[in-house]
Design a protein around this nucleic acid. Structure first.
Lengths: 216, 216
DNA sequence: ACACTTAAAGAACGGTCAGTTCTCTAATAC
DNA sequence: GTATTAGAGAACTGACCGTTCTTTAAGTGT
């Protein structure tokens, strides 16, 4: 019945007395711990137990907020987004794009790279979750390069229809592919090769399209 | 000692007596069981226990041959390669490439797609293993498209230098990117978009006007 | 100030799976 | 034949996941 009324001789070490965090404060501590774990051991080796103990909380507190590792990491990446550093603005499309790809490359060489791989693998299961990952993780590249293109259009370097074409994001798409296959950081020669022998010929002025291909 | 001195009251059911497979026969059975498991539950849910019991063998036999799940799956994919079906040969580069991308798309919609994702995620750890994956899994696309290009060069559709350029594999690179981000099968409109608005403008003869693409 | 409600800390548990290591014994080599 | 190799099967350690329980601090309402 009420077994241990009295005294609890046990529990020599029980710091439930310490200032107990709640709500947002605790949540922030958990997300911070998650990012630290990601930086130290990467996504694949991140465990809920480790995050909980690093944040000096309990797994129960984690599972009350997130349904699993992937959701937790996703939120950690979302709120404390990795530094973006503003748009490159060198005055010419070529150097702008090279600067962007270089930045993406170093970004992928950070723990973020392993997160990317891990989340990509987990997209197999849930389509809704897959959409979430796509939206939160894979939009940075395309959004940024479209902004660079927009300025190039205003300078007259690029024809406006390119913005709505699949050509627009080829540079970041190829960089992502390169990273996934060969790892990061992506060699600088490869970056300039992507830009000079593929991307610029596709988007720069005199580049002709086959038929009227402004769709998507 | 008499072989079956009546000991061991235990072991009511012990079929170690059945024809015990060895060497290559057993290995084939294991690889077959691996492929069946892959087809049924996908890469993420594949476990060594299940493979062992499906092959009616023991985990010890698996670990004597492979150091883990990834190596096993890699070998299973390598030996009993998924059907290639020969090179598309339609007489024109455009239709050849579209046929190739379609085939790759359906391939990625098979269990092979989940294998791809899983292996990609495991490349984080070991660089040697990463190379192995790249070589065994991601060569099919590029190798095939180079063969298509080679024939296009012989027909005069494409200039020879393209074969050694990064442009050569852009179609398969973009398809892989599309699959990883959006899943398979890849919509047919996207495939033709990749080919018509990106790939062909990059590789076809000089300045491919929509009407007369000069072959002389 | 008080009782009441919420939720954090911590521990334990059941379950799954990875890898390892036993024993026993069939298949093979010598 | 005898000796060696290696497969079958089971047990076992250890990691991790996700859940649940108890105890108790932090808020909430009156």
């Amino acid at each position: 019945m009420p077994p241990n009324v009295g005294r609890a001789v046990e529990s020599a070490v029980d710091h439930r007395k310490g200032p107990r965090r709640r709500g947002e404060e605790l949540e922030n501590a958990i997300l911070t711990a998650t990012l630290e774990e990601l930086a130290e051991v990467g996504y694949a080796a991140l465990t809920m137990d480790r995050v909980a103990s690093r944040a000096r909380t309990s797994k129960a507190a984690l599972y009350r907020r997130w349904s699993g590792r992937a959701e937790l990491v996703l939120d950690a990446c979302k709120l404390r987004a990795f530094p973006d550093g503003g748009l490159p603005d060198t005055g010419a499309l070529r150097t702008d794009v090279i600067a962007l790809l270089r930045r993406m490359s170093t970004h992928m060489a950070s723990p973020f790279g392993s997160i990317l791989r891990g989340l990509l693998a987990e997209m197999t299961s849930d389509p809704d979750f897959a959409r979430l990952i796509r939206d939160r993780v894979h939009t940075a590249g395309p959004v940024t390069i479209r902004a660079l293109l927009q300025r190039a259009v205003e300078r007259g370097e690029v024809e406006p229809w390119i913005l709505g074409s699949r050509r627009a994001t080829v540079a970041t798409d190829l960089l992502r592919n390169e990273f996934l296959l060969f790892g990061a950081p992506v060699d600088d020669g490869i970056i300039t090769d992507i830009v000079d022998s593929v991307y610029l010929p596709l988007v720069l002025r005199p580049a002709p399209g086959p038929t009227g291909d402004a769709e998507h």
